[in-house]
Simulated assay, not measured.
Amino acid sequence: MRLPIGSTCAPIILSSDKTRLSQQRGDKTAWPVYLTIGNIEKGTRKKASSHVTILLSYLLTPKLDCFSEAARSVTKYRLFHYCMGLIMQSLAHTGNNGVQMTCPDGFLRKVHPILAAYVADYPEQCLVACCMENRCPECKVLPTERGKHCLHAKRAVKETLDYIQRYQQERKNPQFKHEFEKTLGLRPVPPFWAGLPHTDIFEAFTPDILHQLHKGVFKDHLVSWCTTVIEKEMDARFRSMPSHPDVRHFKHGISMVSQWNGGEHKEMEKVFAGLMAGHAEPAVIKTATAVVNFIHLSSLECHTTRSLAVMDSALDTFHENKAIFLELGARAQGHFNIPKIHSMEHYTPKIRLFGSADEFNTEAPERLHINYAKEGYRASNKKDYIA
């Protein structure tokens, strides 16, 4: 990217996340969009109390009951991109033309804000990328090949926009429709990021440790498989753990808890590989250890080439031994074409591109929901609460 002499770039980090406002009953939701900039020190940006992340807008959250079930999904995509397009108009204008600003060194420079990173969970990444919900928002992997341990061709902005623009004229062409829907898995929706300068939205997606690893790969899949392998022994082992000041004691086990948060997942990961020892086949223990190691390494606050090589090695070990869960009947579906497991392939390339993944974790937007959505809702009369 080339800017005029005397100009500089301000990397913009966006995040959006729909959240529930009502806890016990009702279906009240809010959909905040947050903005911060990349040249703020990571430790400062991670603290909600530092106020370096601002609320841009609340997106609409209609039920869309007036549409058929088939049309509802595409309509949701169109509404999202239309609203984000309105919000991003000023960013597109200043990104192209720049704006005069006084920098910390006292010099006046023309600053071009450029969308550099987008923090979101998997469903919203698909929404932003204009791809179907069973596709990877970053690469062209087919749904039936997500369980393979390899990198696939990246999605390209120019190619994607070209296919979306041609859709209305060529949608009745069987070959074009097959490429559009089956090969690329796209939605016919004009994307809000089409007019943003120097933005590769598919490169902008950041790793999501909370939803992809803690809640997804670990809790939803690995714990479920290992519990099936050792049956009722899992709860007994959690209950019999000795007390330690740095380790949480799950005195009632884990099977009866219906909802977990990120902190509880992390506490389980500290002891999980040790609890499996002596009561499962070596391949099961090896696979579980590899997953836990990968999660811990991905959460590091800084990385070296050695730490990234160890991450890659842990991922290699998982894929080499994962078939044991099929052999033991713990994974009934007979395959590992799971979006959140496939997302692990993108972690080390994204860490090399953006830096450590902990600064882009969706735990930060989850914390901001308290200040910018939930506290206001609870203090209101629950009517016209967005206003």
Results as ranks from 00 to 15, higher is better:
F325T: 06
M311V: 03
E281Q: 08
L300G: 02
A273N: 00
S307G: 10
V284S: 10
T289P: 01
F325N: 13
K322D: 08
F325V: 06
T305D: 15
L308M: 14
D312V: 04
T287S: 15
K286L: 12
I324R: 12
G274P: 00
A332R: 13
F272C: 09
E269W: 03
L300V: 02
V291R: 00
F318Q: 09
F294H: 02
H265S: 05
L328N: 11
T304E: 08
A280M: 07
A309F: 07
G263E: 01
S299E: 12
T317D: 14
K266I: 08
S307A: 12
A314C: 15
M268V: 00
H303K: 08
N293R: 04
E327L: 14
V291S: 00
P282Q: 06
G263Y: 03
L297T: 03
T317F: 10
H303E: 13
H265I: 00
M311E: 06
S313E: 14
H319F: 15
F272Q: 05
H265G: 03
M268L: 09
T305R: 13
F318Y: 12
V310D: 12
K270H: 08
A290Q: 02
E327H: 10
S298I: 05
F294P: 05
D316P: 03
V292C: 15
E327N: 08
M276I: 06
T304G: 12
D312Y: 04
E320K: 14
V271T: 06
T287L: 15
D316S: 12
A288V: 10
D312W: 06
L328T: 09
I285N: 12
E327C: 11
S298N: 06
L315Q: 05
F272P: 01
I295N: 11
V291T: 00
I324F: 12
K266W: 01
A273V: 03
G334D: 07
E267Y: 05
L328G: 10
E327A: 15
K322M: 14
S313M: 14
A280P: 03
G334S: 08
G274F: 06
E320C: 13
A314P: 04
V292G: 10
G262F: 01
S307N: 08
G262D: 00
